[in-house]
Write a protein that binds this DNA or RNA. Sequence first.
RNA 1: GCCCGGGUGGCGGAAUGGCAGACGCAACGGACUUAAAAUCCGUUUUCCGAAAGGAAGUGCGGGUUCGACUCCCGCCCCGGGCACCA
Length: 842
Amino acid sequence: MQQHYPFSEIEARWQRYWETEGLFHTDTDTAENKYYCLMMFPYPSAALHVGHGRNYIIGDAVARYKKMRGYNVLTPMGWDAFGLPAENAAIKTGIHPRASTLRSIATMKRQLRAWGACYDWDREVASCHPGYYRWTQWLFLKLYENGLAYKAAAPVNWCSSCHTVLANEQVVDGRCERCEATVEAKRMEQWFFRITAYAQRLIDDLERLDGWPERVKTMQRNWIGRSEGTVLEFELTPRDDGRPDPLASVKCYTTRVDTIYGCTYMAMAPEHPALADLVRGLPTEAAVQEYSRRAAQRATHERIADEQQKTGVFSGRYVINPYNGERIPLWIADYVLMDYGTGAVMAVPAHDTRDWAFAQHYDLPIRISIQNPEQSLDLATMTDAYTDDGITADSGQFSGLPNREAITRMTDFAKEHGFGGPMVHYRLRDWLISRQRYWGAPIPIVYCDACGTVPVPENTLPVQLPDDVEFRPTGESPLASSPAFMQTPCPACGKPARRESDTMDTFVDSSWYFLRYLSPRDEQRAVDSETCNRWLPVDQYIGGIEHAILHLLYARFFTKALHDIGLIGFGEPFAQLFTQGMICKRSEKDGQLYKMSKSKGNVVSPDSLIAEYGADTVRLYTLFIGPPERDAEWNDQGIEGASRFLRRLWRRVYEMRDGLRAVTDLPLPALGECTPAERELRRKTHATIQHVTQSMDGAFHFNVAVAQIMELMNVLDTHDPGPSATDITRRVVREALETIILLLSPFAPHIAEELWIQLGKPPGILNASWPEVDPAALIVDETEMVIQINGKTRGRGRLAAGLDDDAVRQAVLEWDIVKKHTAGKPVRRVIVVPDKLVNIVC
RNA sequence: GCCCGGGUGGCGGAAUGGCAGACGCAACGGACUUAAAAUCCGUUUUCCGAAAGGAAGUGCGGGUUCGACUCCCGCCCCGGGCACCA
């Protein structure tokens, strides 16, 4: 053994050992006591930085810990390998996305190994591999067969910089989630997955996900956006010119039907499909169409940007309020969204801030129909809409009701009279999966002039990506430029037909990879149902919070859909979810804290750090940096602490190992044989085991776990097992040192393995058991009691442990410190917290 | 606007209602060294005090309690999600 910690040499050696021993190779056929530990598979960008590392280090620590606890652990790894960056690079450099992706994968795999992260590499998958995307295509066909995939013309989010459409989930504040370019509204024929069919189940099943952070569940709930309300049908009054109407009524959706008697106009979205028919031939037609045309050009986010400036135009038509028969004007207004509800709203200016603003601007009537509890609402003094609860007023037969009750009564009334009823609405839209790009799984559909839309037969999959394409950004998929790809006989009639040229959103690839890990090379089927049913749901899923909605919602949807199709027997993919915080770093330019990323220029590469300090030091610091669920600031100096600690541990083993080896076979001493110092070390050892185990099983607070191990080390350092030490001292020190190494091994596995054998143990510390707490060692004879007088800490004193409250009272009242502070005042009360604290009230 | 987090030394952060600041970083002082690195020892919330000791202190203001970083009420600030959602 060397005196100085030779991290490079031992890390390389143990990494080889783990690989040749097949440390995390898992037989999923026979496995019992299973534990599926999964990290979100990465997109192969050029290289990993220490911010990415947090995910893999946490996952590796959990996997190693569970293995030591006797679980049969499955930890696979793969690559979310389709995607835009590689294709954009191809446009710039001419390097084929496949080539650059494979190179990135090689680099990242090397980096993961250098970190000491262990996976069952035999199960590696890459979503860009035909052996994988063949089954992505197959799953598309299954969804298609089951009515869950469809093509429709719809207004879509177009990113002119990425030259493709985006799903709603990929638009953030009107900008492309990836490149931050402004998203434009465009009408296109696109493929969708019917995720809305699962809206309610996606909400309901969140209840069962006890192992998910509340934050993520709330975000998903908000995103799905369930709203309960009432749908009402307003009849149109006949046209003045007596011409027939193709449309008899207009539907609107409201959550506040209780305010209906205050409704003074109706407002309709400019994109409403009935609009053209409504105004045809009217004097207002030209104005309405012009208004509608201009509004449609502005994307939704633009329209909502200037909230105050609500615009609209009178349609020239009127509708009848079904509750009171009143005739009210029908307006077209751009604050009404076609996307939500029915695209038309009943406007109640007195009780809705938007309607209020609109009515003020266009001088429309305002009428109070809900009174506040003070009955003081008065149009003359109101400066804004009253939107709180209250009592219905001037509302015909419904007057005088608490408004919540009125909602139920009025909705029932609508249903009884056939002009409406309850309605549940969701904000969630169907998932748009078409992408006008090359580097993705081709949508396996053929268009035939005779047969229409024809699915590609399963046995001819995969529809392979062609190589003869040009990566020119045109707004059309590069696949369309490949005649060899596009021209194909119709699978149904054999006549010449065209292939679909769009590829699938890469979130489709990542919606089922956790199933494929169970049978990664199976050429007969996408998923091995039986094995999946045994091993899933995933026991612990670990990844970034940025996927709270996107990936995690899609994967949940896929799991439910595949469950209903009969491929799997479970409805939720991930039992426990842990979302680690981002690693940030202060920018050298402006001193601000930013998420570590290449574009911000604040990345720290693991390669040079590992070369300088070793992987274990990088791992230990990454875990120690702060609570793992929170964002953390990377501090270049902080790593010194981790490095010092491991060097110190190495040195201790180096200095002590001869003395400690001598007592290997000695049994642990009984409590009575120990000196007070030895007993204290044993107590600390076992208290540390208890605390670290709790940290690992609970909230994954590795930062605290590492701190506790450091504390034990600090206590150990006060003991000298040198030549003059007794065997008992040595034995107790040995126990403490072994414990440190065992507890540390999930965090810093290489040094733990090495020190383990240096203590004379067999190689392979993961096969050693996690240490057990010896309750006897935790027992103490004497404790230090904190003395409080009137709630203020005044000192402390030693007292026999386990005394009853009266005995403590008696003893403590005799102490000088107590006498001094009570100073003759009568003691009114003594509160005793056993073995901890006494508070004397006087 | 609504819904979640969070606010503790110079810094990262610890604390089942019971010693606030564990552990680490940085800084300062000292030992070892020709010197440096490494290592080791000590100091480090603020204020008063030579010290012993005392006072204040966990974003702000109240409250509950023998006792509050922790629980309750009302605010402020920071971060995140949703949002002309009818």
